[in-house]
Design a protein around this nucleic acid. Structure first.
Lengths: 156, 156
DNA sequence: TATTGTTATACTCTATAACTATA
DNA sequence: TATAGTTATAGAGTATAACAATA
């Protein structure tokens, strides 16, 4: 086990304040850099982040309306109208009438769209797992735990 | 609505072969989500990511040319011209003549620009450290090590 | 009247190509 | 000729406001 770098002696109760802030700054920079590098790995279509995100939502949650997509991404409806239009033009999504509500539009993934998501994820996972393969068991265990912790605090 | 078979959620990594790929997928999603949440915390000026990044580079590396900034951010020079122009209009950076090379422009942070970076970082660190404060010592140690590991593999 | 989606308009960020000024 | 920066033009993404169609 790599050493858990025992906390320096001082400051019993209030130590966490300064420590948290230093770790926060360190984590902030590191997470940002890692994410940026990861997103540089893209699929064939070379989709933008917003475009890819829409495909990913559709794959995860199934067909839905532009309004729901906009809400999910916390952007205004007209922006999603354009993004969905772009994806439809490229054949990555399909727009159909809602069966019962004439106002709504149902956006769904095409086979091409699904393949694009899979390809992009495959590349990103490949890049990351190639680097994880260079780590020892201990380090991988740390990252596994870290992912769980980050998931927890990000959910709040 | 008959959904298009949404993907099952990523399985938590277990200790066996093929773990790298599972951990990679898990980390990828987690890092992305954490970073997105962090960047939602912004300073007074409400700068965009590219704008803020320029200020951060200038603070870290000192005055430099638009060309260097563009290279650093891996964007084309004209895009940086506009971003720097925007920041100059808002008084966050200053553009001066290069002392010896008449072609070059020297971009540097103003006091306002420096304050904006500090304010944004303060908010992001505050958000993150507030969540770190809710963790036990062991979890914080894990994140400390994880930051070091991520920094190492991202540098490659 | 409320909801859903679109169109109209404007601003930012990005790119490539062409141009100016300097080295 | 090469380099640094800008301007011109175009496409994507974002926003707000106004509109059309439907519930």
């Amino acid at each position: 086990m790599s050493t858990v770098s025992p906390n320096p002696p001082p400051e019993p109760a209030t130590a966490s304040a300064g420590t948290d802030l230093a770790l926060a700054a360190d984590l902030r920079v590191t997470l940002s850099r890692a994410t940026r590098r990861l997103k540089a790995e893209r699929g064939e279509a070379g989709l933008s982040d917003p475009q890819f995100n829409v495909l990913a939502i559709l794959l995860r949650e199934g067909p839905t309306s532009p309004g729901r997509l906009a809400e999910h991404e916390r952007i205004a409806a007209p922006a999603m109208t354009r993004t969905v239009g772009c994806l439809a033009d490229r054949g990555l999504v399909r727009k159909d009438e809602h069966p019962t509500d004439g106002r709504q539009v149902v956006v769904s993934l095409t086979a091409e769209g699904e393949a694009e998501v899979a390809e992009t994820r495959r590349r990103r996972d490949a890049w990351l797992s190639a680097r994880l393969a260079g780590l020892d068991t201990e380090d991988r265990a740390v990252l596994t735990q870290a992912a769980e912790i980050l998931r927890r605090i990000t959910a709040s």
